[in-house]
Design a protein around this nucleic acid. Structure first.
Length: 599
RNA sequence: GGUCCCGUGGUGUAGCGGCCUAACACGCCUCCCUGUCAAGGAGGAGAUCGGCAGUUCGAAUCUGCUCGGGAUCGCCA
């Protein structure tokens, strides 16, 4: 070993010890005859002192040291001079008085300072990711991520799960996201696809009798990137046989509670997890992934609003749409600028407009509202009675701002859900250290696709319809609720699971409903359906996004921050400069000819 | 594919039509300095302003296109 002690370890109890440490020069303070070095390794910082009286050669050598050089130093741990302690550092009571210095490697001037305090351009960070990852914050995130996956392995192993690796080279399944494909050399013209998830494979493992499978699985999707989307992401994928919905949920609830407690002790999670049906979530929050850290729940006021003289309300109500809204507490004093902002925000979510009613805080009560207490662009169309009634229904009080959107159900929900989150942000109601988990369950199995005029799977095609809804499969598939649920936390979907279909005929029926031909079914799902005919156990499971979870525990917005070597928004890796051209010989071996796009 | 924001020495920013042969901080180089910890002091090097085209007597500053980064809608779980 090059070292017998880590930089972050020495304490005042270590005084007098002879130690050897090795690491990177974090910073150098050269006083001429006295040189201080902050030496950094994975454990932290240690102040090294070069004093010619204790090591003349070492001191001479130390004059050449620069940032990020790699050195090995031997010396004695000494207490710092009284008054020279540094309470900022865990090792701040002591320092290493050096007798020997070995320069293990030098560094050219770094592209940016290795420190949490500097903000560096994303491209530069990724190009020098190996430097970026030296920053303490990034080291901390790498360790956090490891801790999370370690607990997953431990916990699931304790619960009787077996980890099984599934292939990365598998078959393209054109529905869902676009596949990444890999050409085959031995089968000219054929391609593998990288898995979007190991869904079919884990179900096959259930047929194989594994009963409890898990994998921390890489999943690939060739779609446009976002702050929370990378071309490859990692899922905790697991599947269980002979279980019901609650059994699967319990595994996750126990696991995630434990992870938050052990891996992110400064963060709190609720327990038990909140349970909401899909219908209830949509009704109360307008979204299937509500942020439950704050209230501002939605209210439907279609009937009341329709009795007003406002033509927008009348038109929407008579055409079967809805009028809904929520109350932003204490925002009744918002000025023109702020309400304009909100209207603009609503429009960017697709709304035609935003109706707001500001109630002045000087009003003694809702019943005692007078004309002068009300500010609203629709004021002249809304009688005092209608406003009072709306305020009562929505639970508004003097001093509040009522935000109302009218339109089709879907649009109203989308706009209000976004607006609700926006208001929470503005009102500073979002504490990232507070995690509120919820189960949103009883999702419909199918969505009606207006454009294609056909049913689409709401989540995925393998989820089992509720037993009591089987009859609707033939009569009205849109009404079928699946044994299908999401794990939601602070407004983000953390994962999704279901009890799967394990019957060939039922699975085939579902494929038919979403319009797959016999050929498509056998081509894409033949292996699964065949397996089902050999005694498939009832089973269910989940896929949970690891990157997003770790980002949340770390308090990061972008999953890029919690992936060691991520890609840019154009799916480019600036470090390796991937993707890249390949040799003509490689193309030839793969039977591939490249046709560049025109223009 | 759409919309929006950003692109100035190594890093982060200022400058937003002539005062810019570009300013500041950090970093880098040289020298001084035995108690600093974002050390200090003195001096120095380093960018033609992402690229191209245009407007103008004159562009880092205006316009168009383009490239790159980021946010977001579509897409995607």
């Amino acid at each position: 070993m090059y070292k017998d002690t880590n930089c972050g370890e020495p304490r005042d109890t270590s005084v007098g010890e002879q130690i050897t440490v090795a690491g990177w020069v974090n910073r150098r303070r050269d006083h001429g005859n006295l040189i201080f070095i902050d030496l950094r390794d994975r454990s932290g910082l240690l102040q090294i002192v070069f004093n010619p009286e204790y090591g003349e050669t070492a001191h001479d050598l130390a004059q050449s040291l620069r940032s990020e050089w790699v050195v090995q130093v031997t010396g004695k741990v000494v207490a710092r001079l009284p008054g020279a302690e540094n309470p900022e550092l865990p090792t701040g009571a002591v320092e290493l008085s050096v007798t020997d210095l070995v320069i293990l490697n030098r560094s050219i001037t770094p592209p940016f300072e290795v420190s949490d305090d500097v903000e560096v351009d994303a491209n530069t960070r990724l190009k020098y990711r190996f430097m970026d990852l030296r920053r303490p914050r990034m080291q901390e995130i790498l360790k956090l991520r490891h801790k999370v996956t370690h607990i997953m392995w431990d916990h699931l192993t304790e619960e009787g799960f077996t980890q099984v690796e599934t292939p990365i080279l598998i078959k393209s399944t054109p529905e869902g996201a676009r596949d990444y494909v890999v050409p085959s050399r031995v089968h000219p013209g054929d391609f593998y696809a990288l898995p979007q998830s190991p869904q079919q494979l884990k179900q096959l493992l259930m047929v194989s009798g594994v009963e409890r499978y898990f994998q921390i699985a890489r999943c690939f999707r060739d779609e446009d990137l976002r702050a929370d989307r990378q071309p490859e992401h990692t899922q905790l994928d697991f599947e269980m046989s002979f279980v019901h919905q609650d059994d699967v949920m319990k595994v996750v609830e126990d696991l995630y509670t434990r992870i938050v407690k052990e891996a992110a002790p400064d963060t709190t999670a609720n327990g038990p997890f909140v349970r909401l049906t899909y219908a209830e979530a949509m009704e109360r929050f307008g979204t299937d992934k509500p942020d439950l850290r704050f209230g501002m729940e939605l209210t439907t006021i279609t009937e009341t609003a329709a009795t007003s003289d406002a033509r927008v309300f009348q038109a929407v109500a008579s055409s079967g749409g809805s009028i809904r809204g929520f109350v932003a507490p204490g925002c009744g004093s918002y000025g023109r600028r702020q309400t304009d902002d909100l209207t603009e925000f609503a429009k960017s979510s697709g709304a035609q407009g935003l109706v707001f009613i500001a109630l002045d805080e000087s009003a003694p009560s809702i019943d005692a509202l007078e004309d002068e207490h009300i500010k609203s662009p629709l004021k002249k169309f809304l009688s005092l009675d209608v406003i009072k009634k709306m305020a009562t229904e929505m639970g508004a009080a003097p001093g509040d701002l009522m935000l109302i959107v009218a339109g089709t159900d879907k649009l109203v929900n989308t706009v209000l859900a976004n607006l609700r989150n926006e208001m929470a942000k503005r009102l500073d109601m979002l504490d990232p250290k507070r995690l509120i988990f919820s189960w949103v369950y009883d999702f419909p199995l199918f969505d009606w696709d207006e454009e294609l005029q056909k049913y689409e799977p709401a989540h995925h095609v393998f989820s089992s319809p509720k037993a009591e809804h089987m009859e609707y499969l033939d009569t009205d598939p849109g009404k079928v609720i699946g044994t299908l649920w999401d794990l939601v936390c602070n407004g983000s979907e953390m994962g999704s699971g279901s009890i799967r279909i394990h019957d060939k005929d039922l699975q085939t029926k579902l494929f038919n409903i979403i319009g797959y031909t016999e050929d498509q079914i056998s081509d894409r799902f033949g292996q699964l359906l065949t397996a089902f005919t050999y005694g498939a156990p009832p089973h269910g499971g989940m896929g949970l996004g690891l990157d997003r979870f770790v980002a949340m525990l770390a308090g990061e917005e972008a999953i890029r921050e919690v992936i060691a070597f991520p890609k840019t928004q154009s799916a480019f890796d600036p470090l390796f400069e991937a993707p890249s051209r390949i040799e003509d010989q490689q193309l030839e071996d793969l039977h591939i000819r490249v046709v560049m796009p025109k223009s």
